[in-house]
């Protein structure tokens, strides 16, 4: 029973409660840095690392952190991991680090991370929090990859720098500009809303005689 719940912790972040596409959290990096796949990978991995690290630390310290200053404590923990990620990126991939600019430091205020601490890590065991953070982190990476692929392929005609359509491709400049981010995200949310609406069971029509039939059936049972 508990095992099933644990896999659910891991899997829910990928699609059913995807942090970007369903909870619409972390819009700032999702809109700002998804104009190339390389940027998206770097941002996704950095956020994944910060999320997993701080979830594990917060849940292991959850009984020590006083309730009144918990947000402050979470921010300090998150900021520590962000500083680590920032320095590692700067040392290993300086070009991408330069392109991402302030958005690396801004992972501190990414609401996906703070939301997972407040909503999950503060109330659950270290193992469960770890699974939750891994699921949410991968969900974030999936969403970023979807955005990046659409925007880089249309906006530059490339994928990870490799040409997709050949040298004569006319790039859709708008897709690598901010409006392209809003358009892509809007269309993705539209598609997902349409899909979930189609899958959801039709709401029961509240008609008086329906209610009475249901009650009478219950009475018979």
């Amino acid at each position: 029973m508990k095992q099933v719940a644990a896999t659910e912790d891991l899997l829910k972040g990928l699609w059913k409660e995807n942090p970007v596409l369903v909870q619409t959290l972390g819009m700032c990096p999702t809109l700002a840095i998804t104009n190339s796949v390389a940027n998206g990978i770097a941002m996704g991995i950095a956020t994944f690392f910060v999320l997993v690290g701080s979830s594990v630390l917060v849940s292991s310290l959850r009984k020590l952190i006083p309730n009144e200053v918990r947000i402050t404590a979470y921010i300090v923990i998150i900021a520590t991991f962000v500083t680590v990620a920032d320095m590692v990126l700067q040392a290993t991939v300086p070009v991408i680090h330069k392109q991402l600019g302030a958005f690396i430091a801004l992972i501190v205020v990414n609401c996906i991370i703070l939301a997972r601490q407040e909503a999950f890590a503060a109330k659950n065991t270290v193992w469960r929090s770890f699974l939750d953070a891994v699921g949410m982190g991968f969900g974030f990476i999936i969403a970023l990859m979807l955005m990046c692929s659409v925007r880089e392929v249309l906006g530059s005609g490339t994928f990870l720098g490799h040409s997709v359509f050949g040298p004569n491709y006319e790039p859709w400049v708008i897709m690598v500009l901010p409006p392209g981010g809003f358009l892509t995200l809007g269309f993705m949310l539209l598609a997902i809303a349409a899909w979930t609406k189609r899958k959801a069971p039709k709401p029961l029509r509240a008609r008086p005689h329906d209610v009475t039939t249901r009650i009478s059936q219950k009475a018979v049972v």
Binding site: E170, W172, V173, I174, M175, L177, P179
Partner: peptide, 10 residues
């Protein structure tokens, strides 16, 4: 406006 932003040269 979309075309202007997408294909500024054409």
């Amino acid at each position: 406006a979309f075309l202007q932003a997408a294909f500024p040269q054409a």
